[in-house]
Simulated assay, not measured.
Amino acid sequence: MGYRVLDPDDIAPSDDRPCELRGLTEPAGLDRMAINRFRAEPGEMLPLAYHYHDDQEEAFYVLSGTLHVETPEETYEVPEDGLFVVDPGSPQRAFNPADAETSVEVLAIGAPPTEGDVHAYDP
């Protein structure tokens, strides 16, 4: 059996994102899913680009604030304690709009954790 307890605040944020990203996958020793915690201030985007995945399913659980997710059909507003799920092949761009009053904190889970599975989407 294996167990681990982590404090995400002890994990250094990534410096290559438009918002705060704390990658939890590797510190947790996970190999069948990817988990990230995001904190986006008003005007910040979570991913590096509007994108889609070939194989990975994604789930965004909103810890605080309101997450906005742009898709080709519409822009969704996901409130605190809400869950937004993205199927493989479905383009999306998660963000906190510039006119938001607060930051948004999100736990993002993706499975399987694949390399090279992300593709830019140009609407």
Rank of each mutant, 00 (worst) to 15 (best):
P8A: 12
G23W: 02
S64L: 01
A108S: 12
E80V: 01
F60C: 00
R22I: 08
G23C: 02
P8W: 09
A34P: 02
P112T: 08
E57K: 10
T66N: 02
A59R: 05
L46I: 15
A108Q: 08
A28T: 08
E26W: 04
P91R: 01
L21Q: 12
E77M: 01
D16W: 07
D9N: 14
V78D: 00
P112R: 04
P88F: 03
Y121N: 09
G43L: 11
L46E: 10
V69A: 10
Y121D: 13
T71R: 09
L107I: 06
D55R: 11
D16M: 06
T66V: 15
F95Q: 06
L6V: 14
L107G: 01
L83I: 00
Q56S: 15
P97G: 09
F95N: 07
I109Q: 02
L24T: 01
E80M: 02
R39Y: 06
P18R: 07
P72L: 13
P72Q: 09
G110R: 02
A120N: 11
M45P: 01
Y3H: 13
H119A: 09
R39N: 09
T75R: 13
H68S: 15
S103V: 03
E80S: 05
E57C: 04
P27C: 09
T66R: 03
P88R: 02
T114C: 10
V86Y: 04
S64K: 02
R4F: 08
V106P: 10
Q56A: 15
M1N: 07
G82D: 00
G110V: 03
A12R: 05
A98N: 08
M45R: 03
A100S: 15
A94M: 07
